[in-house]
Design a protein around this nucleic acid. Structure first.
Lengths: 206, 206
DNA sequence: TACTCGATCAAACGACCGTTTGAAGGATAC
DNA sequence: GTATCCTTCAAACGGTCGTTTGATCGAGTA
């Protein structure tokens, strides 16, 4: 008799995501994770091999979907002749926003992703770059067409800034307090709108 | 006979800063810290009381100085009648850049600061807000005078984005690879220049 | 010289860590 | 019925963790 409709693997991934977001990769122990997932301690090493592999799977589960959505949105933008800079930015930002709004742990995952940046861990960076770098490169090409006055290096710098601000905003790091009655969802939606306006102006700067 | 000209406390703080930056607060152990500082393990609890207090002292040592520099730069801007938005942004960004360029561990500290954001730890957030919030509030007032077309809420959102991008840039999270022959210092200086241009345009957006 | 007291030391405390082990379920195929 | 294979389980492994203890050092004072 299980406490959930989900498989052992899925329950471990869900619990790990929440606890990694809250306490970090080193700070959350497998005992905490397995207790929260209502599975035996040994299940992590049985299903994933090691804690390190579990961490990678937490990323894979969400990023596969995120990148597919970004890719699809970007392809739509590429096909339209009248697409604006805001459209391309939206193709980059909206999928991340939607993921962060996902009812089951999306918000936690965005915090996990922000932690990965902070970790500066080479193994993790290589994993992310190897598996998801190609989509980012395609975005750069599209932005380059839309902003021909910027040389490639300048463009890289500005997109790097946008990525940083996006991560920061989606992980809810900001100092802006949610007003009473405002849900976490609509707070993030606001953040995305403001970010698109801000980033579009920043990218267009001479 | 000590291995260094610095006091035990200073050596612990320096080593802790570097190791917290590299492995995180939970990931870096007091045994690693005291070994790197060339002091006895018990010295941390003798001088700081606990690991938690040591973490706070790592912040205090740098942030006192950072805030004083920001305050001074902002006061100069306030006194000039012809000060531009770029001047005010510079007052916010340049002190952080200078800190990150500090030869003895400044770069490490910016990564520690970014980790603090990622930690989302309430105790730490309260500590930072209580001790350093007033300077940020003063910046908001100045920006509000310079951008009267933005209502207060819009302005808060945009400054929040700037703070996120700044943290991201100074912690060297970006995907931009340093070119051969470019020092970490001049890489950060470039990042700050780009950030001021980008942020000024973003803030001025209608 | 004797005393004091902050600083440093090696050693140990109990708790928790990631991982491994070997036995026990429990469904499916023969 | 029983053999097979995947999964789950309690228990234990060696190690590392933050913290505490009590001895020892060494400069300053009476």
């Amino acid at each position: 008799m299980n406490a959930s409709q989900f498989s052992t693997k899925q329950r471990i991934l869900g619990a790990a995501e929440v606890l990694f977001a809250r306490y970090g990769f080193a700070g959350a122990s497998l005992r905490q994770v397995t207790a929260a997932a209502n599975v035996n301690l040994a299940a992590v090493n049985y299903h994933f091999g090691s804690k390190e592999n579990l961490i990678e799977e937490v990323f894979r589960r969400r990023l596969d979907d995120l990148n597919a959505r970004r890719q699809a949105a970007l392809t739509k933008v590429e096909k339209r002749a009248d697409a604006t800079l805001e459209d391309a930015l939206d193709a980059f930002i909206r999928p991340a926003l939607q993921l962060s709004l996902d009812r089951s742990g999306g918000g936690a995952f965005m915090r996990v992703l922000a932690r990965a940046y902070a970790e500066h861990d080479d193994r993790l960076r290589r994993f992310l770059s190897d598996n998801y770098g190609h989509v980012l490169r395609e975005f750069v090409v599209v932005f380059h067409h839309m902003l021909p006055h910027l040389d490639k290096e300048e463009l890289y710098w500005r997109l790097d800034i946008v990525a940083g601000a996006l991560t920061y905003a989606m992980a809810d790091f900001g100092v802006i307090k949610r007003k009473g009655g405002t849900s976490e969802q609509s707070h993030r939606e606001r953040a995305a709108e403001h970010l698109v306006r801000f980033a579009a102006a920043g990218l267009r700067a001479p």
